[in-house]
């Protein structure tokens, strides 16, 4: 059973075993608007929770995508840079960014689950 966790910076991570698939949330993509460029990290790169991991750009602005968990990048969504609109169309599925092998599973306990993230979004409007 995959475990879904969220950050206050609107990234999500879906945990299967010791690997987390990461992306940005539907709220994040709707705030960004049309995504026109995605830059993904190199496979093998070590990332720290909350540190820069990827870049997403709309027509108007560039935004950093932070690593929701610490670990090593073990895969990236190779097709995404050629089809960045997937971030808008399918932020939680086809529009995933990278898979990170977790170095500290304890980080997950401090993160929001889906209900917690929905409650957090409600405080933003």
């Amino acid at each position: 059973m995959a475990e879904l966790r969220f950050t206050k910076e609107h990234e999500w991570v879906r945990i299967e075993g010791d690997v987390g698939t990461c992306g940005i949330t539907d709220y994040a993509q709707s705030q960004l608007g049309d995504v026109v460029f995605v830059e993904l990290p190199a496979v093998g790169r070590k990332v720290a929770r909350g540190g820069d991991a990827a870049v997403v750009e709309s027509v108007k602005a560039a935004s950093e995508v932070y690593a929701p968990v610490s670990g090593e990048v073990v895969a990236v969504n190779e097709g995404l840079p050629d089809n960045p609109a997937q971030v808008n169309q399918s932020p939680m599925e086809d529009g995933w960014f990278m898979k990170i092998r977790l170095s500290d599973a304890a980080e997950l306990t401090a993160m929001m689950d889906e209900a917690g993230y929905k409650a957090y979004l409600a405080t933003l409007s």
Binding site: G33, D34, V36, S58, V59, K60
Partner: peptide, 12 residues
């Protein structure tokens, strides 16, 4: 207005 529901890309 920075954009309408159509979005920047569609409006452009």
């Amino acid at each position: 207005p920075v954009q309408y529901p159509q979005g920047v890309l569609g409006e452009h």
